[in-house]
């Protein structure tokens, strides 16, 4: 417990740094939000009016103080692109991104880990080559391309997948919000039809993302399994006549899991930030597309809010992974 508290204290300077850097970065962006939002027939006077309304006419330190004050009271400002408070936007959109990313990660893990283990156990065999081909293909096809290809084949040509219109087909209504994950919420509400619809919408984008993240997980599983399999305790276990299944899953994989978990953490974080393109292709209302949209329009508040939320998320993720280490391998347990 104390260890966790100590970890949390070290986060504070990180966050202060993130706040300052995001503030400064967004201000040095070229572009003038006031001119952008003043509309088609704006004259200089109305642009200035909007600039004043946004507080952009004040010197930077004053703007920064106002920003910090807002943060302290929990307001992240309003996004001009959707007109809503950034906090509400993030609350509404983070679960969408998280649901997509987690599903993708689950799919990816359930394929990549067994594939990696098999490839390591039967090194140089047919399955090892399959593993290599799949991972190389997955990582070298850009996600927007696979996304569009999937839509073209499975929706447009075959008609198996539903229309790529976001998280739910238009004729379904959102399930009552509990977790923000439509699949879970619809199950809680006992609405199987909505569950099926939400799952169907999820399938293609999750598959697209999963294909992309197969590579690092499979390669890492394979590499770390290989090094563990060649170590002495495995030889001993084998020599002692343990079943090959017990040796591989019970002893080898357990010891190979540490680097795999690290990779999973990394993959999860880059998926969450990098699924912008998938969100765009599938009209998925996630945080990534929201942040990019805001960036294009030089809309400061959402960009700052997004970076801040991501920073918090990474910090939480790192903490979780550290704790997981302790569970997997008592030797790396946080010094208590």
């Amino acid at each position: 417990m104390r260890a966790i508290a100590r970890r949390l204290v070290t986060i504070v300077p990180t966050l202060i740094g993130v706040v300052i850097v995001t503030f400064l970065l967004t201000r040095v962006l070229p572009g003038d939000p006031a001119a952008y939002f003043a509309g088609p027939t704006a004259d200089q006077a109305s642009i200035d009016q909007i600039r004043a309304a946004l507080g952009l006419d004040k010197p930077l330190p004053v703007q920064f103080l106002a920003y910090v004050k807002d943060l302290a009271t929990g307001t992240l400002g309003a996004a001009l692109s959707t007109g809503q408070p950034v906090l509400n936007e993030l609350k509404a959109r983070l679960p969408a991104s998280a649901e997509l990313t987690l599903t993708a990660l689950l799919i990816s893990m359930s394929i990549a880990i067994p594939l990696g283990i098999l490839a390591a156990v039967k090194e140089g065999s047919f399955i090892d080559h399959v593993c290599r081909v799949v991972t190389t293909a997955g990582v070298s096809l850009p996600v927007f391309f696979t996304g569009l290809l999937f839509v073209y084949v499975f929706y447009y040509l075959l008609g198996w997948a539903p229309a790529p219109v976001g998280r739910l087909d238009v004729y379904f209504s959102e399930p009552a919000r509990v977790t923000g994950f439509f699949t879970i919420d619809s199950l809680i509400a006992g609405d199987l039809e909505t569950f099926r619809a939400a799952l169907a919408q999820l399938a293609l984008p999750a598959a697209t993302l999963a294909l992309f993240s197969l590579a690092p997980i499979a390669r890492m599983t394979r590499a770390s399994m290989l090094s563990v399999l060649s170590s002495e305790f495995i030889r001993t276990a084998r020599a002692a006549g343990l079943r090959s299944r017990t040796v591989i899953l019970g002893y080898a994989f357990r010891n190979a899991m540490l680097p795999v978990v690290t990779t999973l953490g990394m993959v999860f974080s880059f998926l969450l930030g990098a699924n912008v393109l998938v969100e765009k292709v599938f009209a998925w209302p996630g945080v990534g597309s929201f942040a990019v949209e805001a960036l294009i329009q030089s809309d400061y508040a959402p960009v700052q809010g997004f970076v801040l939320a991501m920073a918090l998320l990474y910090v939480a993720l790192n903490l979780t992974i550290d704790l997981l280490y302790g569970l997997i391998d008592p030797r790396v347990r946080l010094e208590a």
Partner: peptide, 21 residues
């Protein structure tokens, strides 16, 4: 009237051609 935002131009076209929009 339900008005959905579909950012990808290719998908907007696919939706109309498939008769979904």
């Amino acid at each position: 009237v339900i008005w959905r935002t579909i950012p990808s131009a290719g998908n907007r076209r696919a939706l109309v051609e498939r008769g979904d929009a």
